[in-house]
Design a protein around this nucleic acid. Structure first.
Lengths: 166, 166
DNA sequence: GCACTCACGAAAGATTATTGCGCATCTGCC
DNA sequence: GGCAGATGCGCAATAATCTTTCGTGAGTGC
């Protein structure tokens, strides 16, 4: 992973691919204002530099049978680094846990989970999460409804900052 | 949005495109075991049915200059439906707010935010979020480090359920 | 047994991806 | 000023992919 100097075209490419990751290179080139070959080279460079981590189809979880989404706040008994890593590793192994972030404040971790239904989640909660060694407390909150769910970052904020510092 | 009966090939397609959304149709067809034309037809059908909502490049927020990620728990004064919708609409307009979910329990909403640095976030917090009408309380938690961040749903869980009910 | 529906896969033409190469611009250095 | 070297663009050509068309076979209901 090498630091890369991005120009405006690169940022446009990132913004476009974040919005539509399956766009053809020809279309992308047209939108950012260069021809196809240099555009493809830039995309490859962005991928190799790690600025683009991958491409994902966004699926409709609910329609696919994952009716339930839950945030879980987890507190641990011990916050020793080895214990923190051990818990993180557990989270990586649980398919129902989609995100795990270590937080500051009273709570140690926040987990975003999905499940086919409430009983599946309860089963995971009582059978897995709560029985994990070193887990002191878990507070769960069901998602009643989703109001916004945008992946990635707001590139317009980035552009603003660039123009201000330029 | 019409309900669609999915067979195993469709689920494989969804899983593959969730993992790599930029895969060529030829490669996808090879992986799911059919030829390219019917594979493309299935993908189009999945897109039109809304099961595939879109495709996104996953970008490296930190390298792009968004060093800070914050979860904010928001409580409102009034939980009347009109007030709830009004707050959700505000969230949709704030670029730093990437996700907004309504929760059950003590807290009304959880927000996932990104920002270039702490001071940008403080500025947003004090200048926007806290001054929004009807916002009663905001508790923020900084993400110290990310341990897992997988988009979408675990298709292996889905396959398990299918085979159990079949 | 016969229409009907459905989904597959081969074939072909259109579009796109990818490579090679020449050219312009910029930079550092005489 | 003027000369390498590096960088990045775009044209052109080829390889690969996309997309449509069409014929075929399996399954279904009557």
């Amino acid at each position: 992973m090498v630091a890369i100097r991005l120009d405006e075209i690169d940022r446009k490419i990132l913004a476009e691919l974040q919005a539509d990751g399956r766009m053809t290179n020809v279309e992308l080139a047209k939108r950012v204002g260069i021809s196809a070959p240099p555009c493809l080279r830039r995309v490859r460079t962005l991928e190799e530099s790690g600025l683009i981590r991958g491409y994902h189809a966004e699926v409709n979880s609910r329609e696919l049978g994952f009716e339930v989404q839950v945030f879980a706040m987890v507190g641990l008994e011990s916050q020793a680094e080895s214990e923190l890593s051990a818990f993180e590793e557990r989270c990586r192994e649980w398919p129902l846990v989609r995100e795990c972030h270590m937080l500051n404040g009273e709570v140690d971790f926040i987990l975003k989970c999905v499940a086919p239904d409430l009983s599946s989640f309860q089963q995971f909660l009582t059978g897995e999460l709560l029985t994990t060694p070193n887990v002191a407390s878990v507070k769960t909150s069901l998602v009643i409804r989703g109001a916004k769910d945008e992946p990635g970052v707001p590139f317009d904020v980035l552009e603003e900052r660039m123009s201000r510092t330029a």
